[in-house]
Design a protein around this nucleic acid. Structure first.
Lengths: 108, 108
DNA sequence: CTCCTATTTGGCAATATAACCAAACAAAGA
DNA sequence: TCTTTGTTTGGTTATATTGCCAAATAGGAG
């Protein structure tokens, strides 16, 4: 694997990794409906606000969301909405997988 | 967050997490060119064969690749090639990010 | 059957992630 | 100015991931 490929793969992996946590997946799905402040997301995720803030930092550093100060609050929004296109495929992967498991169960 | 949403997010995150490692990103990109055996991938990744084998297990359990015995070897191939569609968007995210950094550097 | 080759599994040490609490900040309002 | 509200950062602990080596397994070849 040459240097260029390595850097490319590290970049891809960084973005994927940022999306690879249930709370962060939820945040991305929620931000698809529009900008949200940390407090709203905290409420919905149901974790400590510091935890949610750190999740948002991970997403921002991966280039997936951006933030903007609005009054007393910080609003987060998707900076690359095309990320959402992932999910339709991923849902398909998951569904396929479920189907296989069902087939397996039926087979037994 | 209701139970259904939680399960959905965990499913999404599992797939993303599986893609969230440089070696596994590389493997997926390589498998886009066709099936490969563990030995070939090991050679290309440049890690211990046991390490690569475990990466492949992670990808298989996420439903991204499937394996098939062929002679003495085990061939891996993409089971959900649509995963590749992610990458064009992700590359865009990365490029955007680089652009921002360049702008920042130019600004300084 | 025995050897060989390809792969997987178990075990361990190093590193990274995640979650919480507490404390620090930043900015708006009294 | 002092307080309040919303957010981020630091510190700590528990848990998970990663990578290697060594050992186990699975099958083909001789």
């Amino acid at each position: 694997m040459d240097k260029k490929t390595q850097i490319r793969c590290e970049g891809l992996a960084k973005v994927m990794k940022a999306l690879g946590h249930p709370s962060r997946s939820f945040i991305v799905l929620e931000l698809a409906n529009g900008p949200r402040c940390v407090c709203e997301l905290t409420e919905m995720v149901g974790a400590d606000i510091s935890t949610v803030s750190k999740h948002l930092t991970v997403l921002r550093e991966a280039g997936i969301v951006k933030s903007e100060k609005k009054g007393q609050m910080v609003l987060y929004e998707l900076s690359s909405p095309c990320v959402l296109n992932f999910y339709s495929c991923v849902e398909k992967v998951i569904k396929q997988d479920l189907t296989k498991k069902e087939q397996f169960l039926n087979f037994q």
